[in-house]
């Protein structure tokens, strides 16, 4: 992880929220290229709001978001979508749509609305289905799938966008243990072999410790701790961020910090 490279994505003095309620206040964050950043924090700490504001899905109230050093809301939205993919937490399942039809929508930013009037089944779609293990399920209807399979279909759609930056809001929700591990390995593979930058909201601290290069802990819309998993996941931060009394030991497999509640 290099700290000298300019950030791909940055928030400067960012305030954001819903309607008049401020959830994230005056926050500054820089995301370096080819890193995996985990946003952690208790419910309502503002991590999803932060992620969705970085993704220009929520409108910011103050400050700015920079994508490749340019204000994100001055770039055309399709231009942003070609560089930055978003996996939202609450996604609507269109009635009757199949996995392939959902994944196809990931090609929208690259191909544009006119080309998308024709059916597409290109390399990007096939790779996305492959990487998420959904190739055998491609023609199944989304409403006939389990919650985890559906979540993987949404991840496949985001991957089909083939962006350099991925923002994932609780990507492991609904997934069983094996698919959680598969997804985290996929994230590492995308960083190592494709040079992707990933920012994700995670609830499982051990997952964050194990797979993220950097952990950002939020509480009440502010960053309380920011650094490597070892720097952030200490008994002290766990108490101040989560009000949890915990023991932090070394993970016997990875050597990273492992949190055990007391």
């Amino acid at each position: 992880m290099s700290t000298t490279e300019p950030p791909v994505l940055a928030a400067r003095g960012l305030s954001a929220g819903h309607a008049r309620r401020v959830v994230v206040a005056d926050l500054t964050l820089e995301v370096r290229p080819r890193t995996v950043t985990a946003l952690v924090g208790p419910n309502g700490s503002g991590k999803s709001t932060l992620l969705m504001t970085l993704a220009r899905v929520l409108r910011r109230q103050a400050g700015e978001v920079l994508l490749d050093d340019r204000p994100i809301d001055r770039l055309p939205s399709t231009e942003v979508a070609r560089r930055l993919g978003v996996l939202p937490q609450t996604a609507v399942v269109p009635t009757g749509a199949t996995v392939r039809e959902l994944v196809e929508q990931g090609r929208y930013p690259q191909l544009g609305p006119w080309a998308m009037l024709r059916r597409h089944d290109d390399g990007a779609m096939r790779r996305a289905l492959e990487l998420t293990g959904l190739t055998p399920l491609a023609d199944r209807r989304l409403d006939s799938l389990s919650g985890g399979e559906r979540q993987r279909a949404w991840i496949a759609m985001t991957l089909a966008q083939e962006t350099g930056v991925l923002l994932l809001d609780e990507p492991t929700t609904y997934l069983d243990v094996r698919h959680q591990i598969d997804l985290m390995r996929l994230v590492e593979h995308l960083r190592d072999d494709h040079g992707l930058t990933v920012v994700m909201v995670l609830h499982d601290l051990n997952q964050a410790a194990r797979h993220a290069d950097r952990v950002v802990a939020l509480r009440d819309g502010r960053v309380l701790a920011d650094g490597t998993p070892r720097e952030v996941l200490t008994s002290g931060t766990l108490r101040s961020v989560f009000d949890v009394d915990a023991l932090v030991v070394d993970d016997p497999v990875t050597g990273r910090p492992l949190f055990v509640a007391r």
């Binding site: 899905v57 939205s77 979508a81 978003v86 609507v92 990931g106």
Partner: peptide
């Protein structure tokens, strides 16, 4: 949905 659609540009 609004978030996914915005995300796709």
């Amino acid at each position: 949905g609004e978030p996914a659609a915005t995300g796709l540009g």
